[in-house]
Design a protein around this nucleic acid. Structure first.
Length: 287
DNA sequence: AAGAGGCCCTGATAGC
DNA sequence: TGCTATCAGGGCCTCT
C-alpha cells in the first residue's frame, strides 16, 4: 500500500486518534520484521505520551513525550489498525472488540492506550519499527534521503545538477529515495505520463523543460493522491477502514493494453520491467 | 562512484 | 482440486 500519499493518510488518522494518548502496555507478538524488534521495545514506549504523529517520506514518526521517537515504516504490506475497547480500564485482558478489519494472521505489535489499541500487521515483514533517542539521531536516520517533492529544496537547480552525468533512466531516479523521497512504483509511472516523458529516457538527456515538468508533476500527482485518500489497490484501507480512490485516476498504472487516456492520443499503454519493477507508459505520447 | 542485481517475506492469482 | 510460477505499493546490501 504505501507510498508517500498512503503514509500521509495513515498519519492523519493516527495523529487524530492517538495524539496525547499515553502508552499503557505494549505486546510484541512477533519480533521478526525487516529489523528485529529490540527486546527493550515495550519498556521504551511504556508510560510515554504520543505528542503527535509526523511523517517524512514514507516513514511515520511517533513523537514521544520525552523527546524520543518511534519510527514506523510500512514496507510493502504493513497496515495499522485501531481497535477500540468497550470497557475502560480493562486493558490487561483481551477485552477489546475485534474489529472486522483486523486480520487474523501477522499481527506483530500491539500498542495499548486507554480505551484503544493500535495493532501493526505486516504479512511480508518488510516494514519496521525503530526507536530513536533524540532529534539529532532522527536527523541522522534520514540523512541518506533526498528531499520530498513538496520541499523547496526539490527545485530546478537541484534536479538538473543531480541529473548531470548520470546514466540511469528517469523512472529509476524517481523511485530512488536518495534523489527524491516519497515516490514509489505507482506514482513514478503516473508522474512520467503527465510529463509525456518516456520512463526509459536517460536523465542526462533530459532538457530543462523536462526537469520542470518532473518537479511540477511530482507535486501534482502526490497532492492529488493525498486529496483522494491515497490509492487502494489490493484493498488498502486507511485506519478508519475507508478506501482511497486515487486508483480510479490512474492514467497508466495497471492499465497495460488499454487505450491511452490522453485526449486525441491513439496509443496503447505498455508494461515494461525497468530495474525489476513494472513500469507503465504510453509509447505514443511519452517520448 | 555509479549502476546492476539480488535478497528479505507471504499471499493472491494465473496457468497447467 | 492441486500443483508451480509469477508478481506485488520498498529498502538495503554486495558486487563490479
Amino acid at each position: 500500500m504505501p507510498e508517500l500519499p498512503e503514509v500521509e493518510i495513515v498519519r492523519r488518522s493516527l495523529d487524530e486518534k492517538i495524539k496525547q494518548k499515553k502508552v499503557k502496555k505494549v505486546i510484541v507478538r512477533n519480533r521478526n520484521l525487516r529489523f528485529k524488534i529490540p527486546l527493550n521495545f515495550g519498556r521504551f514506549l511504556k508510560n510515554k505520551k504520543i505528542i503527535k504523529v509526523q511523517r517524512f517520506s514514507k516513514y511515520l514518526i511517533l513523537c514521544l513525550s520525552d523527546s524520543s521517537y518511534c519510527l514506523l515504516h510500512l514496507g510493502m504490506s504493513g497496515t495499522v489498525h485501531l481497535i477500540h475497547s468497550n470497557k475502560k480500564n480493562s486493558i490487561t485482558n483481551t477485552s477489546f472488540y475485534n474489529s472486522p478489519e483486523l486480520p487474523k494472521k501477522h499481527n506483530h505489535i500491539e500498542i495499548i492506550f486507554e480505551g484503544m489499541k493500535m495493532v501493526y500487521n505486516d504479512p511480508r515483514r518488510f516494514g519496521f519499527f525503530q526507536l530513536i533517542k533524540d532529534y539529532s539521531s532522527l536527523k541522522k536516520r534520514f540523512n541518506h534521503l533526498g528531499p520530498e517533492p513538496f520541499q523547496s529544496k526539490f527545485n530546478l537547480r537541484y534536479v538538473c545538477s543531480f541529473f548531470k552525468k548520470k546514466e540511469k533512466n528517469i523512472k529509476n531516479f524517481l523511485i530512488d529515495q536518495n534523489f527524491v523521497s516519497g515516490i514509489g512504483n505507482i506514482y513514478a509511472s503516473e508522474i512520467l505520463f503527465l510529463g509525456k516523458i518516456n520512463p526509459n529516457k536517460k536523465v542526462n538527456s533530459l532538457i530543462e523543460k523536462d526537469c520542470k515538468k518532473i518537479i511540477f508533476n511530482s507535486k501534482k500527482v502526490l497532492f492529488n493522491a493525498i486529496s483522494k485518500g491515497g490509492s487502494s489497490i489490493r484493498d488498502f484501507k486507511n485506519i478508519s477502514g475507508t478506501k482511497g480512490s486515487f486508483q480510479k485516476n490512474f492514467n497508466v498504472y495497471q492499465r497495460e493494453g488499454l487505450k491511452c487516456k490522453r485526449f486525441r492520443c491513439k496509443g496503447i499503454i505498455k508494461k515494461k520491467i525497468i530495474s525489476n519493477r513494472s513500469t507503465f507508459f504510453c509509447n505514443t505520447c511519452q517520448k
